[in-house]
Design a protein around this nucleic acid. Structure first.
Lengths: 196, 196, 196, 196
DNA sequence: TCGTAATCGAGACGGTACGTCGAGTCTTAGG
DNA sequence: CCTAAGACTCGACGTACCGTCTCGATTACGA
């Protein structure tokens, strides 16, 4: 009578991979709105039930596909040159938001957040919080080395860095150019830097 | 044989108002996903065709409803105290994003931008560009008065101010508290201020 | 909020005919189990919604198709020769049960009766009761003419005539041959006949 | 490579009984349509595979359950009073068709016959033919005793007796009352009786 | 007595059809 | 011509069972 949760041990890895691949492909070809559970099932040669058994909605499928294909993601760079590191990292974020096949997928997922709290939680846990923390940590390490003023508000700094990126994303303004992003990094760092 | 465009002169103002009201009500009661053309038509006592004749999609309906109900919006404040003016303005933006009934509507519209370029254009024209320009102008006026360094990058400044707001919105992090927003304004202004 | 019933005046006769035709065709080609709402919709070039709007289930669709295609059905024959008339009529029933395309449809409908009281009511009203009554009336008319004993139980007689037919149908025994059916009629009539 | 047939010696009697019991229970509680292989398996604490290994379909499961629970069924009664014997037997048939838990099960099985020839064969072998033959034999024995005319068509007689019962069953008319059934028996016997 | 091979429970799998919902188009009648 | 009403096609939703198919774990048989 109770809906017993599925047993992950019995899960077919084959189907899982086919589903993730199909989801990404569809998103590439037809955009996020073209990704439907039905289409994923058809392309992956899989039953809809199998999808619903393991994921609550297509957003989660794409999220997992995205995570799998980007989890070899380099940790926050730490070359010693803070500005360059931040720049590199932020460039990565913009690239993720703007280049196929991950751009459309990530954007679609983000737009789903506004009516799906559970997906929001998952995205935060897997994507956003780690990156935010990594950025803060990178700044902290610079601060420990005395390259940033001791009382700098590092979380605010990170928001100032990422903020304009997402501002443009959210309103669908064109993304920052490389130079513009460099200026942004410089500008924010200048605020924090105790020593030039 | 050609689809003659509708004649705005013969348009029923009664229906128009009923539709806009129904859209806002539905958005308040059931959230953006609960707003469907079907539901609007039913509640407004209006034919679906009438809606489709005058608006391309539900996003435009809500946009118009929103515009109508907020176009008494005050222009960018200019009390002489720059920080206070910016703070007031940004508070308004956050309030728009977070308080019913306009919050859900505006958020829903924004999430639609990612798959509707025409809606994007309309939103930019009616909402975003005017406010962005107003903010830049307010800074320009301060600059002219010599209160900001002459070579300050004002557009970047506005992005730094609004950015964190939309960063949190886009990722559904909780909005900034009043204090936090004040700190944000202060921090950014400090970067630009030639004179303390 | 209330589910308003559809307006029959607005109904598309075109769709209705296409649906009935498709149902009969499918039943002919693939048997009753091959008739699905989905298949009917596909073949008729019609939306599933349209089917569900006008019929509660596929049984009703087939019933209507059947009724439409047999309602030119001759009334109970009355040639003056009672045995021949009964024989003719019963032959018709057997033919209805055994020859495509109506046989499979009728049989399928009948098998549905066992879990659908509303379909049962409809079938009784449209098919069974009229025929039963007609048969009783034919016997009554013979009785009035003094050809059947005045106290004969005519309803029982009709059950004795139709009974064996449905006995074989229900248990899927092969239907009666023509001779066998003639013997059946003779046998029953002999019981009732006051005058040889 | 070939599918080796299961070995009945190693069959789990425990599972078999649980399955049959579950099938009957489900049929009692939710009617024939509520009996699904899935539900049987769940209730019996048994794997679906186990069911499919031993039975071709749910119809066969119910048939076996029915047979097991009614095979203590008395043989055709032979008290010397023919009418009473026939009446008793036919009452039994009606009771089987109308009283839970066997009524719904039997009716469900019968309705399955129309699209399952193998089930038809099984039902005939286990249920129908034996009873039909028994009835004919009972009449033959009466005939041998000179109580029925020597040239009476006994098979037709049995069809006349059972026919009306199944006529009402097939069309879901209410079953005969006890008196009506008595009249039916008398009427048919009168046709056959050489001696009053 | 002990492998060993089949059956067992559990339940995931690819399918098919279900009945519902909303989108956007089209038709009809009335003003 | 606009409107209300709403029927239409289309496509996707999420669910229910089907019958097939692995899995280990259990169990009874024959070596």
């Amino acid at each position: 009578m109770s809906a017993t949760p599925p047993n992950p041990q019995r899960r077919s890895e084959r189907s899982r991979q086919a589903i993730l691949a199909a989801a990404i492909e569809l998103c590439t070809e037809k955009g996020y709105v073209g990704v439907t559970v039905e289409a994923i099932a058809a392309r992956a040669g899989v039953s809809k039930k199998t999808i619903y058994r393991w994921w609550p909605s297509k957003g989660f499928v794409l999220l997992e596909a995205l995570a799998q294909r980007t989890d070899s993601h380099a940790p926050f760079p730490d070359t010693g040159h803070l500005a360059a590191d931040l720049y590199a990292q932020m460039t990565g974020v913009v690239r993720l938001l703007t280049t196929p096949p991950f751009g459309p997928a990530y954007i679609g997922i983000l737009s789903e957040l506004h009516h799906d709290p559970e997906l929001t939680a998952a995205v935060h846990e897997q994507f956003i919080t780690p990156r935010f923390t990594a950025a803060v940590n990178r700044l902290k390490s610079a601060q420990r080395q005395g390259r940033l003023s001791a009382d700098a508000d590092l979380e605010l700094a990170v928001e100032l860095l990422y903020g304009p990126l997402y501002y443009r994303y959210a309103l669908r303004k064109p993304a920052h150019t490389a130079e513009r992003m460099a200026e942004l990094v410089d500008h924010v760092l200048r605020t924090l830097d105790c020593r030039p």
